Simulated scan of single mutants.
Amino acid sequence: MTTLLDLAPEKPATRPSLFGLDREGLRARLAEDLGLEPKPAKMRASQVWQWVYGHGARSFDDMTNIAKDMRSRLKETYSLARPEITERQVSSDGTRKYLIRFAPGIEAEAVYIPGVGRAGALCVSSQVGCTLNCTFCHTGTQALVRNLTAEEIVAQVLVCKDDIEEWPSSRDDRKLSNIVFMGMGEPLYNLDHVARAIDIISDNEGISISRRRITVSTSGVVSEMQVLGERTDAMLAISLHATNDELRNELVPINKKWPLKELLDACRAYPGTSNSKRITFEYVMLDGVNDSDAEAKELVRLLRGIPAKINLIPFNPWPGSPYACSSWERIEEFADIVNAAGYASPIRTPRGRDISAACGQLKSESIKQRASDRRKSASNPAA
């Protein structure tokens, strides 16, 4: 089911948003803008934080433990407006995809997948477009527009929690338990904003998603992997997809800069890696390209000594793609070899394929036919 929201573009907010500030940043902002002394500023920041991220407050009027005159000052000074959802699609399997407009021409997609992790996972974007040009990935066919800010990354989580009605964050029957940075873009090319967003998302007085349930996927930006681990303590996923440099240079061109040996050495050195904190290696199954028994055995050899889990991902087709998905029988035979070597190798069930929300299918609507154009065409076939 697809819901197309025909919303008139909102006027740019004249008041700054409070999303995307860490606790110290929020305290400093309130102190500077409202002239608060350090102790009152810290207290107000804590109250606002809990209302925004713990209760999903959409208005300062909802913040009932703050005096009315202070609420008025906050309302006059700041905005709690969410970004515009220009399209919301719901798959037959319950997956939800949001096309979110942060500014004119600045759109990205986020995907909520129920039943993943402890309860459900949100796949967030860190960039609009991508620079990596991985040949099996639809997102890679869209040129990079810009990095998303910490505010815009966190807003994707708020939009999802609004839609699945998961406020307050402290409720026992949570539907969102995991965050994965596996949407549009390469997170490690936007590490400052990704790290700040993780600090906000994991804060236990707000959204409160454990860092052990936040996974950052990289195609292999080796220079930033150590920094990611030290700054965020997040789980690491590697978009691997090949067992030799020649093929990986084709599938994941960043391999030309950081080849497999350098990438796997960085994995072995990733902070905190252990049998209880394994690195996930993502391996898309491409028919006749990377799915032979020999490649399964080589994959096992390459990962020897790295606490690892291997996610086998059936290729998700998109228009114009040069690849086909391996047969289910071939994927299972590949998985058997990896499992026999002692590695967990779950086969990821494709989710949201019917709304192009599956792994590798995300692409901003800013370069697709507009939803409004589609509706006009449907109502006026002659056009």
Rank of each mutant, 00 (worst) to 15 (best):
Y283P: 08
K297N: 06
L260D: 01
I306R: 10
E262S: 14
R304P: 00
T273W: 07
Y270N: 09
R278D: 09
L286V: 09
R248C: 12
V284G: 01
F281A: 02
M285C: 11
Y270D: 12
D265V: 10
G288D: 08
N290W: 02
C267S: 13
V284H: 01
E262H: 11
R304K: 15
R301A: 14
L299A: 03
R301I: 00
A269L: 11
K256W: 09
I279M: 11
S276G: 06
T273G: 02
I310N: 00
L303V: 12
N249Q: 02
L251N: 08
L247V: 13
S274P: 10
K256P: 08
D287C: 06
C267A: 12
L303T: 08
A308W: 15
Y283L: 03
F281C: 03
V289C: 04
E246N: 06
I310V: 15
D287G: 03
L251G: 09
E295C: 03
A269D: 15
K261H: 09
N249L: 02
K257W: 04
T243H: 02
D245K: 04
N255I: 08
C267L: 10
E282D: 12
A266G: 06
H241W: 10
A242N: 06
N249Y: 09
T280M: 15
E298Q: 15
E298R: 15
P253H: 09
D245I: 01
L264T: 05
K261G: 00
N249C: 13
L286G: 10
E282N: 07
T273C: 11
D287I: 00
V300R: 07
M285R: 07
T273L: 15
G305E: 10
